[in-house]
């Protein structure tokens, strides 16, 4: 365990050093994060002008969902996606074998391979959006609700990470992983609205198959105090189940990869 912790910090350090080489990236990425956060707010701002509620969600409540969306996007762009791109590169250059030869868990190695620290500025930006939403509501969230929301944030991260592992596993079966990655990124965009605005099949897909609902809608509802503790528990367990499934798929994929390549 300690070895893995050390490995994690070594990889993080390498990423930081790499990130440092780009002089303006830091500042610019920070500004860009604010810019995109404002852009994401724009449709809701226009919507507020019409003074309507959507499927029972008020304007500030929708902003809470959007806040979680930006937070999760920070994790996605900063931690998950860079590693994914690293795997894409490995597969393209045929250097994945080197990773598999290392005496450490391959899943751990590939998923901590690269971080893009500057992209994580979305985390504070998302936090700022949440603060703004609650200032519109004119109240502060309960401590218990914050705790529930943080628990669901962990669940959301697990789901996000598991989805990522599934995508990488798919890369052992289909050739073009980068395309899959882009596809996933663009599907994630649907998570910016409460899941209840979707109807029928789409709603089912976004709740159970590609659980965007778990990533943004549920944490938002928890923070607003509109989610029963039992549901929080169920969602959390569901996320863990999802991760176990992802791990099993990964192990199978690796097995297939190592036995297929000569």
């Amino acid at each position: 365990m300690r070895r893995y912790l050390r490995l994690f910090f070594v990889q993080l350090r390498t990423s930081l050093t790499t990130g440092m080489q780009y002089r303006w990236e830091f500042l610019i990425d920070g500004l860009m994060a604010l810019f995109w956060a404002a852009m994401a707010l724009l449709p809701l701002w226009v919507l507020a002008g019409t003074g309507r509620e959507v499927e029972g969600w008020t304007h500030p409540e929708m902003i809470v969902v959007l806040g979680w969306f930006v937070v999760l996007k920070g994790l996605l762009d900063g931690a998950v996606n860079p590693s994914l791109m690293a795997v894409v590169e490995h597969i393209r250059k045929g250097t994945l074998d080197f990773v598999l030869l290392k005496p450490a868990d391959a899943q751990f190695l590939v998923s901590t391979a690269r971080f893009d620290p500057w992209k994580m500025v979305d985390l504070p930006a998302g936090g700022a959006i949440l603060v703004y939403a609650f200032s519109l509501l004119g109240r502060a969230p309960d401590a218990a609700h914050i705790a529930a929301a943080l628990l669901l944030l962990v669940a959301a991260s697990l789901v996000l990470y598991s989805l990522w592992i599934l995508v990488v596993s798919a890369a052992f079966f289909v050739v073009r992983l980068d395309n899959l990655a882009f596809l996933f990124m663009s599907i994630y965009d649907f998570a910016r609205w409460p899941v209840s605005i979707f109807k029928g099949a789409m709603r089912l897909v976004f709740t159970f198959v590609i659980p965007l609902a778990i990533m943004t809608t549920y944490p938002a509802r928890a923070l607003l105090g509109k989610l029963a503790p039992a549901v929080v528990a169920v969602v959390f367990l569901g996320a863990i189940g999802f991760m176990i499934v992802a791990r099993l798929v990964w192990v199978r994929a690796i097995g297939r990869y190592t036995s297929a390549s000569s």
Binding site: R13, T17, M20
Partner: peptide
């Protein structure tokens, strides 16, 4: 010139 190491890289952020 890109110096090696984290600390030096930090510095080169400011002065190139």
């Amino acid at each position: 010139k890109r110096p090696p190491g984290l600390a030096a890289a930090m510095k080169s952020l400011l002065r190139r």
